[in-house]
């Protein structure tokens, strides 16, 4: 599995610097017009793993790399588990990046004179806990998306999976909307969260992360089984 993780990370390292630069620019350009640090942190946390997931899967299909990789001493299970592990590594890295970038932007804005930047972008107003929480929850959402789409990518390849995965995500979203009834989902979450204390909120975040990680693990087991039966 080590070889598979290496393979994924070596492949993506050449585009990492460009992605990092783009992410920083996007973070700044989201933070200033929206007047809030949270959007910038969310964009940072989501963009890197999301782009990684789809670009690394696309590289698999170029020039028969996926086929050739299986001629190396890597089993099919190791390929599947390695892909999940490399995705997790990228998620953790982008989580750290989003937090550091969020704190850095907030701190710099704190030092700027009044009325030169929106108040919501200053770290003193946004709060360190909220910055970390935003990054964590965004990352959790991305991990949940990966949980849903990775088995399809590994079973059918990126080209076919891009026809199936968006449909699946729409079904999940539609299912959530139906369960939510007439009140918009966002409003329900907002009212639910408003009633929670700091301790309950922390417990909720930890709980959500734990559930998504468990689903991610389960998804990797399913994906490994599916990948074993794929003809390449």
């Amino acid at each position: 599995m080590r070889a598979m993780i290496f393979s994924d990370l070596i492949t993506s390292k050449n585009s990492a610097l460009a992605l990092l630069g783009t992410t920083m620019l996007i973070a700044i350009f989201i933070a200033i017009p929206t007047g809030t640090l949270y959007g910038a942190i969310g964009a940072c946390a989501a963009m890197v793993p999301f782009m990684y997931l789809f670009s690394i899967s696309a590289y698999d299909e170029q020039n028969g790399w996926e086929r050739y990789r299986l001629t190396l001493p890597i089993s099919r299970r190791q390929v599947a588990y390695g892909r999940y592990a490399s995705m997790l590594v990228v998620c953790v890295c982008s989580l750290v990046l989003a937090i550091v970038l969020g704190l850095a932007i907030g701190l710099v804005c704190d030092m700027l004179p009044a009325e030169t930047v929106p108040e919501g972008v200053r770290l003193s107003n946004a709060g360190v806990g909220e910055v970390v929480g935003t990054a964590l929850l965004t990352q959790t959402v991305i991990l949940f998306v990966a949980t849903l789409v990775l088995p399809f990518i590994l079973r059918y390849g990126m080209t076919k999976a891009t026809r199936i995965a968006p449909m699946l995500l729409i079904f999940v979203f539609a299912g959530v909307c139906v369960l939510a009834g007439n009140t918009p989902v966002g409003a329900q979450i907002e009212s639910f969260v408003a009633g929670l204390g700091a301790g309950e909120m922390a417990a909720l975040v930890v709980g959500v992360i734990a559930v998504v990680l468990a689903l991610y693990l389960l998804s990797s087991l399913v994906a490994a089984r599916l990948y074993e039966h794929r003809e390449l």
Partner: peptide, 22 residues
Amino acid sequence: LDTCAFPMVSRVADVGTLGRAA
């Protein structure tokens, strides 16, 4: 195989690193 299958974005040195890992 009948094509050079390594990822297009990789460099020759990366292919060596991959071999070392595999």
